[in-house]
Design a protein around this nucleic acid. Sequence first.
DNA 1: TTTAAATAGTGATATTTGTCACGGCATCAA
DNA 2: TTGATGCCGTGACAAATATCACTATTTAAA
Lengths: 189, 189
Amino acid sequence: MNNPEQFLRAHIEKVISLTDEEAAFIISHFQLKTFRKGQFIIEVGNDVNEVYFVLSGLVKLVYEDQDAKQHIVSFAMEDWWETDFQAFYTQNKAQLTLECIEDTLAYGLSFDNFEKLFSDSRKMERFFLRKSIAGHIGSQTRILSFLTSNARERYEQLLSKNPSLLQRVPKSSLASYLGVSRETLSRLF
Amino acid sequence: MNNPEQFLRAHIEKVISLTDEEAAFIISHFQLKTFRKGQFIIEVGNDVNEVYFVLSGLVKLVYEDQDAKQHIVSFAMEDWWETDFQAFYTQNKAQLTLECIEDTLAYGLSFDNFEKLFSDSRKMERFFLRKSIAGHIGSQTRILSFLTSNARERYEQLLSKNPSLLQRVPKSSLASYLGVSRETLSRLF
DNA sequence: TTTAAATAGTGATATTTGTCACGGCATCAA
DNA sequence: TTGATGCCGTGACAAATATCACTATTTAAA
């Protein structure tokens, strides 16, 4: 990642335009962080003080059930926001794990700064509203894929939306994201 | 519904508090509408000019696939917001159907008034942000239920969250919401 | 009232998917 | 290099779910 500040600004300006001053003010609320492959950014039972904007790398958001079986709620790569939103917004303990699949560079935005940001910046409040709406629509699309499609179709949809995942993520993880066993996924093609 | 204005105001004030003037201003953007059981509020291919706040009754948001098979994206009853959000926010044609399961009374909020509302009211922008976040978290919970649970467990989760659905909705529709055939659902108990 | 449509249950069977077990590679660290 | 670990495929079988066909009952409309 050559220029994190420019990258974040460009990301925000896809939604709303900013003056240089506004951009600098906004970016001052973020903290640049690096994580190594395999590192846990969020762990179950801990506080979730930050939402992350991924600059480079790849992370997975995971739920572990009573049988210690892991289910991938989502992947997040460059240009994506991620955290345990339930825990972050309600300021409860994490029920999800956020783990790096690759070395990852991200901006962290603390809950306090998150609140400050949209108290102080009408534009950022608008920005987060749009992002949140987009997230909601995206989730609904994923729900529809469970309702309408079998494992093979869901796999094809995932790869056509996100071809790079095939190179970057083990197939067992793709299976976990799709809600299918790794053996079944392996036999689909 | 005895007093729609009071009902809507109380709903909003669960998130942010309002003065009488603010409440009146906000409510002036909404239009009261009645629909009959079986009536289509949104139809595929049409414009989606409004988001609806349900005061009484029950509606279902449906996707129809290539085989003319219907899949229920969500139900909305009293105190819920509903529309084809994808179409509404992006101002494209509807890909979903919104149909009344019961006679329904709802406030309609036009796209123009929606935009005006949160240009003019910081509080409503905050309100919609919170609602949108809650919707996103809710969708993620539903995705997790597909990842972690079989048909019987999903059915139990749905009923424990929403017991009244069992009385108000045919089981074939519950099956459609759960992503399971009506025959399988019928055999689960 | 009479009829048509919607809803619900169930048997028989096919299809999809999960589970367990095993082996082959590749990767990575001691 | 060697051994451990993760990743991937696959056979054999079990479990979950879908599909088709039929019936009974309820609901709603003519």
